[in-house]
């Protein structure tokens, strides 16, 4: 039998990424840039919600958007056309999530951050549509938000516990179709708070704009707190 040597590693796979994410957060704090990591399933209305939110905030603070997808740049173009704020597309090269390193690379490609005096107050990272992997990899964001849409069902917090446990705010989108689905709002809130008692839950309808003010105000307050 072949002789072997065993080298002990004892290291979490997420350790390097967690460290890079903490370093990035420190850097953002110094520059006064608030990074929001926005996650959800595909088709929950992330891009529409963003457009509505940005249009309510863009006269008050400087905003930039990074759209992460496996392929295409339709989202980045859509955001730019609908809001006028800087919007860039990040390709994950087949990966189902963004990590801190990819986020940092993305930030360095923003025009804004190149000139320190013109740093954006808020950068929104629209993560890959997926409820599993993005939850495992800290992007270096200051806060995590997720959008759950009514057609997806109120039981999602039970099925994707990690995602809900790391989110500071859960936006419930597509409230206009509530009468057509067996979506129990009270149950949904209960399940979310089972995973994360501190999570803020905000029902909205991105299509009509209903409730978007509440989310926009939450975000504005967070951005202000971060700058203190």
């Amino acid at each position: 039998m072949e002789n072997v040597k065993i080298i002990e590693i004892k290291k979490s796979v997420f350790e390097d990424n967690d460290r890079a994410a903490d370093a990035l957060r420190g850097e953002l704090k110094k520059k006064g840039v608030f990074l929001l990591n926005l996650m959800s399933s595909p088709g929950s209305g992330k891009t529409t919600t963003l457009i509505q939110t940005i249009n309510r905030l863009k006269d008050k603070i400087r905003i930039a958007v990074m759209e992460a997808d496996i392929d295409s740049d339709v989202d980045a173009i859509k955001i730019k056309e609908a809001t006028g704020v800087e919007s860039i597309q990040l390709h994950t090269g087949g990966m189902c999530h963004l990590d801190a390193e990819m986020t940092e690379q993305g930030l360095s490609n923003l025009q804004f951050t190149m000139h320190n005096s013109q740093c954006p107050d808020l950068v929104i990272l629209e993560n890959v549509g997926n409820l599993v992997c993005p939850a495992e990899f800290d992007t270096g964001a200051v806060k995590n938000a997720m959008i759950l849409s009514v057609p997806e069902g109120h039981d999602k917090p039970l099925k994707y516990p990690l995602m809900f446990s790391i989110c500071d705010v859960v936006v419930i989108n597509k409230m206009d179709v509530l009468p057509y689905f067996d979506f129990d709002m009270e149950k949904c809130k209960e399940y979310i708070h089972m995973r994360n008692p501190k999570a803020t839950v905000i029902p909205i309808c991105a299509r009509t704009g209903e409730g978007v003010d509440v989310f926009a105000n939450w975000l504005l307050k967070e951005v202000e707190n971060w700058k203190e």
């Binding site: 072949e2 002789n3 072997v4 040597k5 065993i6 080298i7 002990e8 590693i9 004892k10 290291k11 979490s12 796979v13 997420f14």
Partner: peptide, 14 residues
């Protein structure tokens, strides 16, 4: 909740 690399095994030449 662990996703951890415990150790690596390396062949030894004599």
């Amino acid at each position: 909740n662990e996703v951890e690399i415990k150790e690596i095994v390396v062949p030894q030449n004599k």
